[in-house]
Each structure stands twice: as C-alpha cells, then as structure tokens.
C-alpha cells in the first residue's frame, strides 16, 4: 500500500469501528422465540402422534418428518427465508433449518436439470452436517464397542 495508508492491523481496527455489529439485544431474543416456537410446535405434534398410538421413538421420528415437510413447503412457497430473516439461528438450528438447507438448493439448481442440478446440489449446504454427524457416530460407535467388548 502507498504511504499514509494504515498498516493491516490498524486498518482492521478501523473496519471494526466502522462496521456496526448485529444488534444482539434483538437477534438473540428473536432466535429464542422463533426457535422455541418451532420446538413447541414439535412438542404438540409429538403428543398427537403418541395419542395416535405411536411408540415414543416413532413419534419423535414422525415429528422430524412432519417439520421437514412443513419447512419444505414453506421453502417452496418462498416464505422460509423471510421467517429466517427474523428468526436467525431460531430457524437455522431446528430440523426445519436442515430441511431448508436441502430443499433450497434442490429448488434453485433445478435450472441446471433434475440430475446435474437438483440431484447433485441437494447436499451442497447440508452435506457437512450429514458427513460429520455420521463420522462422529462412527467414531463413537467404535469407542463404545471397545469399552463394551
């Protein structure tokens, strides 16, 4: 850089000062409310499935499936990202966020075809979650087997 220009670390300080951060007093309560609401809805569904006679494990699984379906529909209708604007991590962390991460590229890359577009881009965002979730479970399974041999 030319003379009179700030040194890199000095510039980083200037940038930090000039950039306003997220307003956490707003974003965190909103994440709490939206995320909590999604979970409460899940709890309602769980009770319904239990009443319908499903086992607790299956009721939990069907809650996930139902929320994924709802999230997929809202993503298709172009609504989920608007809720996410308000909810932040409250829409990211629940399973609905995972569904949105699968469905949105499926929809977006349709223009490159169902196979090379949608098919291959499905996990472009959610892939790491599956990959590292499975890898972690594999490692855990191995340790569990070693201990309980």
């Amino acid at each position: 850089m030319e003379k009179h220009m700030p040194k890199p670390d000095e510039y980083q300080r200037m940038v930090k000062e000039a950039s306003r951060g997220s307003k956490s007093y707003k974003t965190v309560p909103l994440a709490f409310l939206v995320g909590g609401a999604i979970c409460a809805a899940g709890e309602g569904l769980r009770k319904l499935y239990l009443m319908a006679g499903l086992s607790p494990d299956w009721a939990t699984a069907m809650v996930s499936v139902s929320l994924i379906a709802a999230s997929a529909l809202l993503t298709g209708l172009g609504v989920y990202d608007n809720i996410a604007k308000v909810g932040g991590a409250g829409t990211l962390v629940p399973i609905t966020g995972f569904a949105n991460a699968v469905v949105s590229p499926a929809l977006e890359f349709r223009s490159e075809g169902m196979i090379l577009g949608t098919g291959s881009k499905l996990f472009v965002i959610a892939g790491p979650v599956i990959a590292y979730g499975l890898a972690a479970s594999w490692v855990y399974g191995f340790i569990f087997w070693l201990i309980n041999r």
């Binding site: 995320g35 909590g36 609401a37 990211l92």
Partner: peptide, 20 residues
C-alpha cells in the same frame, strides 16, 4: 409445551450468540 419452548429456544439462542 413450555419446557419444549424454553429449552428449544435456549439452544437456538446459543446459536445466535455464536453467529453474532
């Protein structure tokens, strides 16, 4: 419902703190 709301909400709020 309240328990699900509060615990689920808290887990999400932690995520928001990590983002911010």
């Amino acid at each position: 419902f309240l328990k699900a709301f509060v615990i689920g909400g808290l887990i999400c709020a932690v995520g928001q703190l990590l983002i911010d």
